[in-house]
Write a protein that binds this DNA or RNA. Structure first.
Lengths: 221, 221
DNA sequence: GTCTATAGTCGGATAGAC
DNA sequence: GTCTATCCGACTATAGAC
């Protein structure tokens, strides 16, 4: 039987080291990519010993997978509530055209919040890295996060356009709609350089919201 | 004075090795990223000797820059004609609303052609890699390719919405419009998995064209 | 659990024969 | 210009002291 003191210290410190490594991993993998990130960077950013990476995660790859899982959890926490609510309203009840448009708007406005927030860019960079170089991690993102999100948006778009929700046209249309926001994550460097800014401001967020509302209303009204 | 035979053989073989390396570089850097690509992969893909990379390009980084330059040239060839024509019509003459919309449509339809073509994905992957991890190469892309493209689209959008072409709103709006197509390059893995396809078909291209036309017309009419 | 020291591997670049 | 052989540095992972 373990002593209380040991359990405390073990759990607290161990959790601390693991947590710091995952946190550092998000920043370092986002900035340098999987190959570009070295275990030395990761350890020093997390302020833990180099050997802690193999010890806690079995190696660099294990740490990366832990980072992926933490991103999935972050995403599920941030976007699933909205998604699930939309899904529910679609399945039960028969939302009117205006309601459908408002649902779509709400989802998009929510994404804009993520785009312009300070904690999202690193997460988003890792997700887009995985799109450019899909590994096992991309399948996890897709199955546990992106699929449901994409399907719900497709379902809304399909209803608005009177298409089948599994039709090619509905899927492509939904992707284009989502692209209007997503490109601010994937093409972040371009738009920031174009604006002459280091990061997005609250004004940008507001402007984007009105722009997105206008686009959605004009496209679907 | 060099002998004709030597010049011939030098130029032909040297050009051949250089060309093969650049060509292989596009494929390998696209697939694995800059850090992930090794000189050994690059040489073997190009079917040249490992030492040819330092010899011709001064090293891996030099080869990468040559690849970047070749992509800029490719892009200028593929998209500048359309861009320049639009720019000319904007500067001289006073295009009508319908003409502006048609200009925007034409640019977007052209990009759809690039999205669904077979030779573009690797080029696009390298460009989006540079957006996620901007190096010196990103500045080259921006200054010599993306800036003019983005400015022209912004100018068209600004006229349609009666905004100043350097206003935040016009710039963000144009980026969102472009995002509808660009996301098919940046988020290629996602949409292909969603469609259950390995690559885009001619049908996808057609559908996308009609979708994009509808969106643009509804947004700006 | 945490650290230092080090093993073992692979990367890019070079030297020098041809 | 092209090749083989090799160097050197950086990387990840491990062994073993504390």
């Amino acid at each position: 039987m373990r002593k209380t003191k040991n359990m405390y210290s073990k759990d607290r410190q161990s959790d601390d080291a693991r947590r710091r490594l995952v946190r550092a991993g998000i920043a370092v993998f986002a900035k340098y990519g999987y190959e570009g990130a070295s275990t030395r960077m990761l350890a020093s950013e997390a302020k833990v010993n180099l050997a802690a990476i193999p010890y806690y995660f079995g190696g660099k790859e294990g740490l990366y997978h832990a980072v992926i899982r933490s991103i999935v959890a972050f995403g599920q926490e941030k976007i699933f509530p909205g998604i699930m609510e939309a899904r529910k309203r679609l399945d039960s009840g028969n939302p009117s055209r205006d309601e459908l448009i408002r649902m779509l708007e709400n989802l998009m406005l929510h994404y804009i919040g993520l785009v312009t927030s300070d904690e999202t860019p690193n997460v988003a960079r890792i997700m887009f890295q995985e799109q450019l170089h899909p590994t096992k991690a991309f399948s996890i993102f897709y199955e546990e996060l992106l699929k449901e999100e994409h399907c719900v948006v497709t379902a809304i778009v399909a209803r608005l356009l009177k298409l089948r929700p599994d039709s090619q046209e509905a899927i492509l249309n939904a992707h284009a709609i989502l692209g209007q926001v997503m490109i601010f994550l994937a093409g972040r460097a371009l738009i920031l350089r174009r604006l002459g800014q280091e990061k997005f401001t609250g004004d940008d967020a507001e402007l984007l919201q009105t722009i997105m509302q206008q686009h959605i209303r004009r496209i679907f009204k």
